Deep mutational scan, measured.
Amino acid sequence: MGSVRTNRYSIVSSEEDGMKLATMAVANGFGNGKSKVHTRQQCRSRFVKKDGHCNVQFINVGEKGQRYLADIFTTCVDIRWRWMLVIFCLAFVLSWLFFGCVFWLIALLHGDLDTDYKDDDDKSKVSKACVSEVNSFTAAFLFSIETQTTIGYGFRCVTDECPIAVFMVVFQSIVGCIIDAFIIGAVMAKMAKPKKRNETLVFSHNAVIAMRDGKLCLMWRVGNLRKSHLVEAHVRAQLLKSRITSEGEYIPLDQIDINVGFDSGIDRIFLVSPITIVHEIDEDSPLYDLSKQDIDNADFEIVVILEGMVEATAMTTQCRSSYLANEILWGHRYEPVLFEEKHYYKVDYSRFHKTYEVPNTPLCSARDLAEKKYILSNANSFCYENEVALTSKEEEEDSENGVPESTSTDSPPGIDLHNQASVPLEPRPLRRESEIGSRR
């Protein structure tokens, strides 16, 4: 089982795998120059863009038009607004034209077009017409509009002379109601789609790998820009990579689940303020055997998904993003964004995407760390350097704002901070800030 798991979770494809794949392509008759073999020097295209759209195009789909027309309502909801407006206008105009032609044909076959009612006051002739005051196609078209929109100006009306005319008036009224219901329903469904809710759900630009509770963890940050909550919010993550099976089958995008606390339930989050999602790199993680150097040379993509129900409509929305291997910062942490004021908490989104480097973060893999092949620094050293990194950030910001350097908390000259780390230190809580992250 261990060997199978290692093969499945191998992220960085070796040169031997690339040569094996190329040999397979030639042997199977696919070596026509169009096949692409992804190596370390040639990274694959992003499968999920940063804005959440999937970078996929469908080609050679059989009976595409028929399949889309069979699900016309979903098609109308998914198309762009400009095409929705075109369909909206065409549906009414074509129905008016169709029934206008029908009423014109009825008048033509009944002989109503030969009668001039402007110079004739004989009401008996008017009563013999199928539709009064309809003696041309324009008049028939206007009567069709008046019937379907129930305008009723009063000059044109159907008589009991022709039952077919009466039937067409009733039929057009029913068709008009159906068109109204369909168009209004599609427009309302399109307006109520929770897709735009994703514009106020954000992911951090970069993911980070750092120590948390004595273990290497992959972390990324999510935030909600609205005050309205995302009900039943939960997160998922998958690692996408290519691999070759033991039988020699090439899988271009193998999807591997990344555990973010599904078993323990901590994948469900209360997204009021930005939260750091934590994936513990343990023996079940696809990143277990990867060191910093392996991450730098790897070719994979981590897709992160945030799902929840919109509070206003109770409709489920899904926000997506992805991180390539070069977008994962090893040995970094996110800057705090949640600050405790006197009577409330304040979230500073200008710090949302910012990170700071944490010294002495192990550069080895989580496996080597678990097997004690890498000796961690003293816990006080880690905490102290973590505090120094934050303090230096604040000093830089104070210097930019014009604060005198004498007010900063610099260490005395001639003292090495790293050498001082081995000395037991008193706890130094942050002056006014605390970061709330997901705790395992």
Rank of each mutant, 00 (worst) to 15 (best):
G29W: 02
A25V: 05
K227S: 07
K227M: 08
Q420T: 11
G154L: 02
E335C: 05
A27M: 05
D120G: 01
F155P: 14
M24F: 09
P429S: 15
I11K: 04
Y153P: 04
D160W: 01
I151K: 08
G154A: 03
G62K: 15
V26Q: 13
N135S: 14
Q66F: 13
R46A: 02
H110F: 01
E301D: 01
I266T: 08
L240A: 04
T115N: 03
R156M: 02
D289H: 07
I178D: 02
E340H: 05
E280R: 13
S422Y: 10
V347P: 00
D416L: 08
A233R: 06
P362M: 02
F47N: 02
I277M: 11
L201Q: 07
L390Q: 15
S381V: 07
R351N: 15
D180P: 08
P359F: 03
L376H: 15
I328R: 00
T276A: 08
S144K: 00
P274Y: 07
F352W: 06
S45V: 05
K215S: 03
I151M: 07
L338Y: 13
W81M: 07
S408M: 13
S136M: 00
D267E: 04
L239V: 12
N419K: 08
D116L: 15
L240I: 11
F262C: 09
D284E: 14
S406E: 15
T391Y: 11
T150E: 03
A70Y: 04
D120V: 00
N297S: 14
E405A: 08
A370C: 08
T361L: 02
K393H: 14
V61S: 14
A366S: 09
S13M: 08
F262K: 05
K128L: 15
L239T: 00
G331N: 01
T74K: 07
L324K: 08
D122W: 01
M168L: 12
I72G: 14
R221P: 00
T23L: 01
I295G: 00
V37H: 08
T317W: 11
G214W: 05
Y9Q: 14
T391K: 05
E400Q: 10
A325Y: 02
W96C: 12
E146I: 02
T23G: 08
M19K: 07
I178G: 03
V134K: 00
S321I: 12
E311H: 11
K118P: 00
G223P: 00
G111E: 04
L218I: 04
N60D: 09
L240G: 00
L240H: 10
H110Y: 02
C157K: 10
V61L: 09
W96S: 05
K36T: 14
A189Y: 13
A107M: 03
H53Q: 04
S173G: 06
S35W: 07
S392H: 13
V310G: 15
W81N: 02
R8I: 05
R333C: 14
G214C: 09
V134A: 03
R212C: 07
A207P: 11
Q66T: 12
S14P: 13
D119H: 10
F30I: 13
V169K: 04
L108E: 14
Q420D: 14
F182Q: 05
P413N: 11
L306T: 05
A25D: 06
A379F: 03
T391I: 05
F73M: 11
E199C: 12
S173H: 04
G185W: 03
V61W: 08
C364T: 04
Q57M: 05
S264N: 08
I305K: 11
I436N: 03
H332P: 00
G331W: 01
A139F: 02
E371C: 04
V169A: 04
L430Q: 11
D51M: 06
D416S: 10
F58L: 13
N28A: 11
T6H: 08
V187C: 06
I244P: 15
Q172I: 02
A22W: 03
R221G: 01
R82F: 09
Y344A: 10
S392E: 13
M191G: 05
I281G: 01
P427V: 08
D119Y: 04
I305L: 12
N259A: 07
W81T: 05
Y356W: 13
T150V: 04
M309C: 14
K64H: 07
Y68V: 10
I302Q: 03
S399W: 07
D254G: 07
A298F: 02
L363Q: 11
F99R: 00
V403C: 08
T115L: 05
L201W: 08
K49Q: 09
D257F: 06
S273L: 04
I258K: 01
F339Y: 14
R40G: 13
L94G: 04
C319A: 10
I328L: 06
L417W: 06
I145K: 01
G223S: 12
A207M: 06
E301C: 03
K292H: 07
S264C: 12
D267H: 06
G248H: 06
K292I: 02
G31V: 06
K227T: 11
E433N: 09
H205Q: 14
R243I: 06
Y288Q: 00
D78H: 13
L97V: 04
E146P: 02
T150W: 04
Q293H: 08
I11N: 13
V235A: 09
K373Y: 05
E405C: 06
R236W: 05
K20C: 09
K36Q: 14
Y250T: 15
D294S: 07
A140E: 00
A233V: 04
D122P: 00
D282S: 14
E341T: 08
G214F: 07
G65N: 08
V347S: 10
E426Q: 07
A370R: 11
Y250W: 11
I106G: 01
I277P: 01
P413S: 15
I183V: 09
F203Q: 02
